[in-house]
Design a binder for these strands. Sequence first.
DNA 1: AAAATAGTGTCTTTCAGACATTATCAC
DNA 2: GTGATAATGTCTGAAAGACACTATTTT
Lengths: 256, 256
Amino acid sequence: MDNPAILEQPYITITNIIWSFDRETDQLQVLLVKRASNPYADYWALPETFMRAQESADEAALRLVKEKIGLTLSNYHTEQLATFTHNDRAPGERALSLAYMTFLPEMPPLKAGYGALDAHWFTFSATEAGQFSLTYRQLHFMTATSHSQHSYYKNFKIARGRDYLAFDHDWILKVACQRIKNKLNYQPNILLVLGHDFTLKEARTVYAAFFGIPVKAIDNSNFKKTHQHLFKEVGTTTRRQIGRPAKLYKLAQIEE
Amino acid sequence: MDNPAILEQPYITITNIIWSFDRETDQLQVLLVKRASNPYADYWALPETFMRAQESADEAALRLVKEKIGLTLSNYHTEQLATFTHNDRAPGERALSLAYMTFLPEMPPLKAGYGALDAHWFTFSATEAGQFSLTYRQLHFMTATSHSQHSYYKNFKIARGRDYLAFDHDWILKVACQRIKNKLNYQPNILLVLGHDFTLKEARTVYAAFFGIPVKAIDNSNFKKTHQHLFKEVGTTTRRQIGRPAKLYKLAQIEE
DNA sequence: AAAATAGTGTCTTTCAGACATTATCAC
DNA sequence: GTGATAATGTCTGAAAGACACTATTTT
């Protein structure tokens, strides 16, 4: 190798935004962990792992899910978000992050895993204006307010308290939420958190969460008309409860 | 470091899909280089560079443009495409590629740069069915036919002749073309290849290229109605030629 | 004036949203 | 039956597409 400048390679971090759905409260959840070691020890953060030599980034993202939660998933549930490479994004040495999103078909219980002091499902919510936030009891984290990558990193170096997520994770999370919201009308993979099949009501619940509006505000008839090309009917609910049974759908794009 | 598996880090390659527009022929162009060294020596490929320690991936993509073409651009013209990390994507050692797209406001002449035997602008074209290809004289490269990453890499290991691009570049190129096509109706950054401002006719030419249809097939009145929210009027053409002078527009999202 | 080019206007069809009605369940 | 839930149908307004017309230029 003739160029010494390219010899010094950064470690490659996989950052995974893991989504699930709480059927008790009908709310979307995101996994956050409390970091055990520096940098950003004691800060809450998105779960991360280092990429290994013989695996692809997709595989590393799935391995992270398995290690943190103990779930083995097919790669259909994981998709690439973006890559974050800004020089100032981590203190000290250079850190490069490949961000992925995983949509769990259930909401398994959590225990703090390796490298973490704590781990919890945080409840996702949004405002009508397009702000997103994660909440667990008293803990409350907002996504970044900047509208562009440029303006975000320009103001990034200033000291940040424990009410911020570690690193640039508030920015990564914002990019993730916006991506999901943008794809709701043509590739709503986020609905995978509802499991193999779902009712239109459940789907509208997820949509409403991203729009920051109540479910009631999304008309079922119109929703079906505009989105049925994305869904495939697979039966009817069998649960015994009051009211007419709802039909079940699955994502048309997902093979069995 | 306690885990030996993560010590062996791959080199990080920046792959850049560089677009321009030939005003002589009114055709979109993509830059390809003929590789001087292995792997894939003598194959045509998308231009690449190794990432350096003290730069971000965006900076590396811009540096590549400067080295290959001698143009210094603002980062508004470069955007992230995706990251390609599949284990089999390069023979021998593991190679990780961060792919970017750059839209040049002009079409500068080329000379084969460092690491390349040859370099040319290839003419972009598409079929109505959504196939894309690049052509320069007798050379003709098609984008991958697979519809998913999974099926592409499943068939990737078989030997491929010189009528294929190097590595998985036919797949990367397909992802790029599809991304641009998908964004035509809400963020048509590809129009930056037309320079600072452009006429509606020129814009329709670019759109028609991606749809694989003649410009005539896109009605000017309807096009203006459905896309004017993306454009901002900035004057009128001054060139002396037959017919009513066309109005000039620029992308509304791009600041001066 | 003619030809060429481009901007503007109008009609029709299509689709999204508001709202009303019908269907099926538990009690 | 009643009340609850969900599916289905209808009406209206907005937007997209087909097409006609007007405007400005060079020759």
